[in-house]
């Protein structure tokens, strides 16, 4: 799907053991499969069905998404950081595409 762009918001710094809030937003129609086009034919479903967030390779949070998630999906959740590292955010599309974003946090 064209024009799919993720945005993520992660604090740049945190103290050891701190719980930080992460926010993600991604441009996607989330075509529900329930709509019809001008000729009355059903528009096939095409959504982002899975989101995952890992920190230094370990699972932090994930979400299974259904067509009832609004267009341009927004997800907000938390992570407890014990060390500096990189968050990797991944979205999986029905069409097989994968979208990723990364963000580093320095923990002191």
């Amino acid at each position: 799907m064209a024009n799919v762009k993720p945005r993520v918001k992660v604090p740049k710094t945190a103290s050891k053991g701190e719980i930080i809030t992460l926010k993600t937003l991604i441009s996607h129609e989330m075509e529900s499969g329930q709509r019809k086009d001008k000729e009355g034919k059903p528009i096939p479903r095409q959504i982002l069905h899975t989101f995952t967030c890992a920190f230094n390779g370990q699972d932090v949070f994930s979400c299974d998404m259904e067509p009832s998630i609004s267009a341009n999906p927004y997800l907000e959740f938390d992570a407890k950081v014990e060390e500096s590292g990189t968050f990797v955010f991944t979205w999986l599309d029905d069409d097989g595409s994968t979208y990723t974003a990364e963000s580093k946090v320095a923990v002191s």
Binding site: K9, L25, N72, E76
Partner: peptide, 12 residues
């Protein structure tokens, strides 16, 4: 301004 979904358009 992060939650505002229109900011995706501003980025574009």
């Amino acid at each position: 301004s992060f939650q505002n979904p229109a900011m995706l358009g501003v980025d574009e």
